[in-house]
């Protein structure tokens, strides 16, 4: 598989297909990450597009010391922050209609429907960094080092954010 840096080199050389290849590679993680932030499919599509366009527009500020994926997530987080900053009412979301249970998931039986609903709402109400950290860890499977790069903190802080966040969610489940 072509590496990100090879694709970026091609993009730098004016190869427009390289842009599409990069987007194809990361569109799903970015879209679903953003969807879990904004809980609106149309907004998630628009903000995903904005994330990629901003990334390509500012590609010269990507110094290649970190990996491209973490850089994209960092942009996505900032695009979402701006989205909420422009209109704070957007934070008032109804996530119940968005989340559904995957019946084929072997983990489906782990918690009750009521607990699942509480969990979703609780995750959405965690402090921003804890929410980002848990989302990136659980759904994207990123390492603490990568999450630290994305959220702009140390690896230790990323671990702490995860553990405190999960602790709060556990307490909610325990009732």
């Amino acid at each position: 598989m072509t590496s990100d840096f090879d694709l970026l080199d091609r993009f730098d050389d004016g190869d427009q297909d390289a842009l599409e290849e990069i987007v194809s590679k990361y569109q799903k993680p970015i879209f679903f990450f953003i969807l879990r932030m904004v809980w609106d499919e149309t907004d998630a599509a628009d903000l995903s597009q904005k994330t990629f366009v901003n990334a390509f527009r500012n590609i010269r500020s990507f110094d290649r010391r970190s990996n491209f994926k973490t850089w994209l997530f960092r942009i996505a987080i900032n695009v979402c922050k701006n989205h909420f900053r422009d209109d704070p009412r957007r934070r008032e979301v109804d996530i119940e209609g968005m989340v559904f249970v995957d019946q084929n998931n072997p983990l489906e039986h782990i918690i009750s429907e009521e607990e699942r609903r509480e969990l979703s709402m609780a995750l959405n109400e965690l402090p921003e960094k804890q929410r980002h950290t848990i989302t990136l860890k659980v759904y994207q499977g990123l390492k603490y080092r990568e999450i630290a790069e994305i959220t702009g903190c140390s690896e230790g802080t990323a671990k702490a954010n995860f553990h405190f966040g999960v602790k709060k969610l556990r307490e909610i489940l325990k009732g």
Partner: peptide
């Protein structure tokens, strides 16, 4: 309890 939280989160799907 970690299994419960992570498993609970992972069992959710988005459209």
């Amino acid at each position: 309890s970690l299994e419960k939280v992570i498993g609970g989160l992972k069992s959710q799907r988005l459209p």
